[in-house]
Write a protein that binds this DNA or RNA. Structure first.
Lengths: 110, 110
DNA sequence: TTTATATATGAGCATTTGTTCACATATTCA
DNA sequence: TGAATATGTGAACAAATGCTCATATATAAA
């Protein structure tokens, strides 16, 4: 019976707590501003103003979103003079971004 | 110069429209009820009531969320008598769930 | 056909979320 | 030191979201 389960590759039950955390994790990707920031940072670190200009949004709005991503440990930053440069800080972030992108592009046959 | 870009594996710019759609896609995973439904359905199809009982939530709340996942083409369903059985309808859904799960488990060293 | 069971859905409501605005903090330069 | 530039953050507000309640629809059973 154990062997049967192994053969079937039965999915392991996930703790309720982990599922809550998982949905919280995906929330970071579920906002267009944040996903655009992530996309931009895939090319390398960028300052806050550079991000704001790229997205054509206010600096404050960007700072608020960067804070969210930073506190989730998805970004790191370094200061250089007056500017602060943010960069992606998690290999999973890029992988998940890429997988999601493949999904929607595949879905529409791109 | 083209070769240089290829060697660097420069990330392709993603259309703004695609980024909006991508964030919409991740929103489906960014809710604890929906992620719990997805987790439950990884084991195979389940009726609405079975899902509601498993999550210990009302049938209406589950139906509302199933509708959202269904309209996103993440689920299919079949009727059998009075019951309707839902199942995952997208290989990407499981992959993204799995990758996200690996992320949070890795992050806490499980 | 009436009753029971399973699911779907619109309206209402409370909560969450993202942006803007005003202002605070930090660094550089004159 | 004072002005300019870059970034951070709390409050307020509007929009989006998810649940509950009541009710509609569909199928099966009596």
């Amino acid at each position: 019976m154990l062997i049967y389960k192994e053969i079937k590759m039965k999915k392991k039950k996930v703790d309720l707590e982990d599922l809550f955390e998982l949905s919280e994790f995906f929330k970071f990707f579920g906002d267009s501003t944040r996903i655009r920031i992530i996309e931009f940072l895939r090319e390398g670190e960028q300052s806050v103003l550079a991000i704001a200009n790229y997205l054509e949004m206010g600096q404050s709005a960007i700072s608020h979103q960067l804070r969210i991503l930073r506190m989730a440990n998805l970004l790191t930053f370094r200061r250089e003079g007056k500017a602060i440069y943010y960069r992606l800080d998690d290999e999973h972030v890029e992988k998940i971004f890429q997988l999601g992108l493949e999904h929607i592009l595949h879905k529409r046959g791109k």
